[in-house]
Amino acid sequence: PQPGDLYVTGAGTLPFHGVIHLVTMKQPAGQTSYAIVRQCLERLITYCREHGIKHVALPALGTGVGGLDKGKVAKLFREVLEPVMDVEFVVVDIDESFIQQV
């Protein structure tokens, strides 16, 4: 997979149908960008609509080893995800302040 791609794997013993992976970097701990995060979010919306997915849990993409600013990513999440009315996105992160910003 390339940055900006989306792929799905099984969920193992988790109580979900699958896990959607959003690729934010070419290699683990590699570089990423706000444009790649945007592309991932846009592909996620399209994928959810095409497959009838109504609920998605989503972490703070690119803010860990990717090094992106959480405030800017939160703003990007709001910009891209807020207008979407047919899919519920639940933001999860160990940083409560990020969740509150979204």
Rank of each mutant, 00 (worst) to 15 (best):
A60E: 01
G62N: 11
G62M: 10
G12D: 11
R49N: 14
V80H: 02
V8H: 07
K72D: 12
L22F: 05
V65E: 08
A35Y: 02
P83A: 08
M85L: 11
S97G: 02
I36N: 06
E42N: 02
I53S: 07
Q27F: 08
L58I: 05
T46V: 13
A57C: 13
P83G: 08
K54E: 12
C48N: 10
D5T: 03
I20R: 01
P83D: 05
G67D: 07
L14Q: 13
Y7L: 15
L22K: 05
H55V: 11
V23R: 09
L14Y: 10
P59L: 03
P28I: 12
G71V: 04
D95I: 04
C40H: 07
L58S: 07
K54H: 07
Q101G: 01
P83F: 06
T46F: 09
S33A: 11
V102K: 03
G10M: 04
E88T: 12
V84D: 00
M85Y: 06
I94T: 08
Q101A: 15
Q31L: 12
P3E: 07
D86Y: 06
V91T: 14
V37N: 06
Q31D: 15
I99V: 15
C40D: 10
C40Y: 02
T24W: 05
A74M: 09
L14R: 13
I99C: 06
I99K: 12
G18D: 04
D69N: 13
G62K: 06
G4K: 01
A35N: 11
A74F: 04
V84Q: 06
V19M: 09
V19A: 03
L44R: 05
K26W: 06
Q100S: 14
D86F: 00
G67L: 03
K70N: 06
E88Q: 14
H17M: 07
R38L: 00
P1M: 12
G10D: 14
H21C: 11
G71F: 03
Y47W: 12
Q2A: 03
R38T: 03
L58G: 04
T24V: 13
A60K: 03
S97H: 14
L68S: 06
H55I: 11
D86M: 00
H55N: 14
C40A: 03
T63F: 04
V87K: 06
G52N: 13
Y47H: 15
K54I: 09
G66N: 09
L68A: 07
F16W: 10
D69G: 05
L68V: 09
G52P: 09
A11Y: 09
T32W: 04
K75S: 13
P3C: 00
C40Q: 09
I94L: 11
G64R: 06
V23W: 08
Q2G: 04
G4M: 01
I20Q: 02
D5W: 08
V37Y: 01
Q27E: 15
V65N: 14
A57L: 13
L61C: 05
E42C: 01
V23F: 10
V90W: 02
V84L: 02
V84A: 01
G18K: 13
L76C: 00
E88G: 01
P3S: 08
L6T: 10
Y34L: 15
V73K: 00
Y34N: 07
I99R: 12
Q31M: 14
S33R: 09
K54S: 01
V73P: 00
S97K: 15
H17N: 15
A11M: 07
L61D: 07
R78W: 00
Q101Y: 08
T63P: 01
